[in-house]
Design a protein around this nucleic acid. Structure first.
Length: 323
DNA sequence: GGCATAAGCAGAGGTCGCGA
DNA sequence: TCGCGACCTCTGCTTATGCC
């Protein structure tokens, strides 16, 4: 097997399309059959879509045999549109990376233009995948109602808490979500708090823990750019979907986090205040301020390496200008 | 014989270059 | 930008080997 990535590289819509085709064939079919039904070949790009469907918890894939999951069937057989949207949301948040992004930008503006940079720097997303993953996230979040027209990310916990009690289908209790990080009694997290259908559920020890941000502390300059340093919440591998299989909406098993910032008062793009006492700035400290669409912040340069970051952002801006 | 470890192999799925 | 398809990578399974 290749290096496994735990984030989808294609859009939720394309993953859903593949899952629907599998469902049309009776809930089970081979990769080849699925491709044929979509008038496509079993190519690398098609495998990427199937891989995304698996990562969204819509399908399972074993030995070229694709099967729909309980989560997919829940969506398909939702009682009403509201419930359908709720389950779509659950599927969309199955990849831990997407959950972390939603938590990170909870009720704040998603820096769409810089999202790929953040994915690379903070979430260990491969550079070659970053743009696709950023697109997949933005499009999917919009589709499931987690991102509004102002690019503000909804509060996934609040939305889930508002959800009506789950009306179970007559199906077995779904297995614990394979994408969730195993929980430890020490942290009080509940393992498999999220039903995700029959997604393959290898022993937690066999899977890497859900991705943690590469540099969750306040020292990450990109995080600082968006006011997401240590003072703000850190994305965790906490479970996402807050609806328990027993039918009662539950609060997500949050791990202890630093005091949450005043979310409602947080500007879309937080601006770090300019130093009020320039006289106290060391002679070796420089500051670069960047303002523009979706960004208004400053970078403090105290080390040669910081210049690389500035160069990266300038390059990004250059690409935007060339647009 | 039982267990631990290494080696070999198959296959899933990600990567990459190319073309439409 | 997207799809194709060859190629690459590496996990998990099976088998072989060595040690007790």
């Amino acid at each position: 097997m290749p290096k496994l990535i735990d984030y989808p590289r294609t859009t939720y819509a394309s993953a859903w399309e593949v899952a629907e085709v599998v469902d049309d064939t009776g809930g089970k079919c081979t990769l080849e059959t699925c491709a044929r039904k979509l008038d496509r070949k079993v190519s690398g790009s098609f495998k990427a879509i199937v891989g995304s469907a698996v990562k969204f918890g819509l399908l399972t894939s074993k030995r070229e045999l694709l099967s729909t999951t309980t989560l997919f069937r829940r969506i398909k057989h939702a009682y009403d549109k509201q419930e359908e949207l709720l389950f779509h949301r659950e599927a969309f948040l199955t990849p831990p990376l997407f959950t972390q992004l939603c938590r990170k930008f909870r009720q704040r503006e998603l820096p769409v233009q810089m999202l790929d940079v953040m994915l690379i720097r903070e979430f260990d997303v491969e550079e070659i995948n970053a743009a696709a993953v950023a697109k997949a996230f933005a499009e999917g979040a919009r589709a499931v109602g987690l991102l509004n027209e102002h690019n503000t990310v909804g509060d996934i916990d609040q939305l889930a808490a508002q959800a009506p009690p789950r009306r179970e289908l007559a199906s077995p209790v779904p297995a614990a979500n394979s994408f969730r990080a195993p929980t430890t009694p020490a942290t009080g997290e509940t393992q498999g708090a999220v039903p995700s259908g029959d997604v393959p559920n290898p022993a937690p020890a066999q899977r890497p823990p859900a991705r943690e941000p590469a540099t969750p502390d306040a020292t990450d300059a990109v995080a600082s750019l968006f006011g997401l340093g240590g003072a703000t919440e850190t994305p965790r591998a906490a479970p996402v979907a807050p609806v328990a299989a027993t039918g009662t909406p539950q609060a997500v098993a949050e791990v202890p986090q630093p005091a949450a910032p005043q979310r409602t008062a947080t500007p879309a793009v937080p601006v770090r205040p300019l130093p009020t006492a320039p006289a106290s700035v060391p002679l070796t400290q420089f500051t670069v301020r960047l303002t523009g669409p979706g960004i208004d912040t400053q970078l403090e340069i105290t080390h040669e390496d910081d210049l690389l970051l500035v160069q990266g952002f300038l390059e990004k801006i250059r690409r935007q200008l060339r647009g």
